[in-house]
């Protein structure tokens, strides 16, 4: 893959690390949630076939994390955006 780092531009996938699904919300007060909710946060994932949200780290580069929308079927990146940017809507081919 060629990944378009928001800070460094397009670079080889070798320089990056995938941090898994994006926009996973850590419970505000973990003590207040039950084991099921906690397990959902820890382990359960959408794992979409097609477009999905992920976060990536430019590990051998600027060291910054960023969000992407990427297809897991053809590996193409549909969007790259900052960690605090709003989540874009996914296209139809999920």
């Amino acid at each position: 893959m060629l990944i378009d780092c928001p800070w460094c531009g397009p670079r080889s996938e070798r320089e990056f690390r995938c941090g898994g699904e994006g926009h996973i919300v850590r419970p505000e007060t973990p003590d207040a949630v039950d084991d099921t909710v906690w397990a959902d946060y820890l382990f359960y994932r959408d794992n979409p076939k097609g477009l999905g949200y992920e976060r990536w780290l430019h590990r051998f580069g600027c060291g910054r994390w960023f969000n992407v929308v990427r297809s897991t079927t053809d590996h193409r990146l549909a969007a790259v955006y900052g960690m605090s940017d709003p989540r874009p809507e996914l296209g139809g081919d999920r």
């Binding site: 996938e13 070798r14 690390r17 995938c18 999905g52 992920e54 897991t72 079927t73 053809d74 590996h75």
Partner: peptide, 12 residues
């Protein structure tokens, strides 16, 4: 090291 449903190999 990234999620994928593409059954294909890579160079790295």
């Amino acid at each position: 090291l990234f999620p994928s449903y593409a059954q294909r190999g890579s160079l790295p």
